[in-house]
Simulated assay, not measured.
Amino acid sequence: MALKSTDMAKNMAKKLDGSLKSESLPDRFGQSSKSTSSKRERAAEIPASKLVPVNYRLPAELVNRLRDHAMNHDGGINQMVAVALSDWLDTQSTNK
C-alpha cells in the first residue's frame, strides 16, 4: 500500500527531527570550551544531599542586590541563600 503524501511528509519530518536532535552543537556555540562530561558525571559531583529547585517571586531590587552580593560569595547564590535561610530558620525556632 502506497503512503499518502501527508504520511510521507510526516515520516520525513520525524527523520529530520531525530537527526537534528542527535547532532551536537558546532564548536562556534561554545560547546568545545565546556567539558564534555555527561549529566550523570555532573550529578555524581553533587553532594549526597538532594538539591531541590525552588521558585519564588521576589522584588527586582532585592534580586539585584542578592546577585551583586553573591558574586563575592564562595558558593554562589545557591549556597548564600541556603545559609541565609538556615540561619533565619534557626533564629525563628529559638524565639518560640
Rank of each mutant, 00 (worst) to 15 (best):
K39E: 07
K39N: 07
E41K: 06
D90S: 09
Q31P: 02
R67F: 04
S32N: 13
I77R: 00
S22P: 01
S49M: 15
A70S: 12
Q31I: 15
D74A: 12
I46N: 05
S24Y: 12
Q31D: 09
G76P: 00
L89F: 04
V52N: 06
S22L: 09
T94E: 15
S22D: 13
S24H: 14
K21A: 11
S5A: 12
D27N: 11
K15Q: 10
K10L: 13
A48P: 01
E61F: 01
L89A: 06
T94C: 06
S33I: 07
S19G: 00
D87H: 09
M8E: 13
K4S: 13
A70E: 00
S93W: 09
A44R: 13
L16S: 10
N78M: 01
R42N: 13
D87K: 14
L51Q: 15
Y56E: 04
S33K: 09
Y56F: 11
A84P: 00
G18M: 06
M1N: 08
L3P: 01
D27C: 05
P47S: 10
P53I: 05
T94H: 07
R65A: 08
E61C: 08
D74F: 07
P59D: 14
M71H: 11
D74P: 11
M80R: 00
L66P: 00
N72E: 13
T94P: 00
N64S: 10
S37R: 15
L66W: 02
F29L: 13
A44F: 05
A48V: 15
T6C: 03
M80Q: 00
L3D: 09
S86P: 00
S37V: 10
D27V: 04
D7P: 02
F29I: 08
K10A: 11
M80C: 02
F29C: 03
V63F: 01
N55W: 04
T94D: 12
L58E: 04
S24L: 10
A60P: 03
R28S: 10
E45R: 12
L51Y: 11
R28V: 12
A60Q: 11
G76Q: 03
A43H: 08
T6E: 15
Y56R: 09
L58V: 15
R65N: 10
K96S: 14
N11R: 11
I46Y: 02
K10M: 08
Q31W: 08
K10C: 06
S19D: 06
K4W: 07
G18F: 01
S19I: 06
T6M: 03
M12L: 15
L89G: 00
L20G: 02
M8T: 12
S37E: 13
S32M: 07
L66I: 09
T6I: 14
E23T: 15
H73I: 05
N11E: 05
D17A: 15
N64M: 12
E41G: 01
S38T: 15
S33F: 12
S37G: 06
I77Y: 01
S38F: 04
I46F: 04
S86I: 03
N72S: 10
S93N: 08
T91L: 07
D74S: 13
K39T: 05
N95Q: 14
H73L: 01
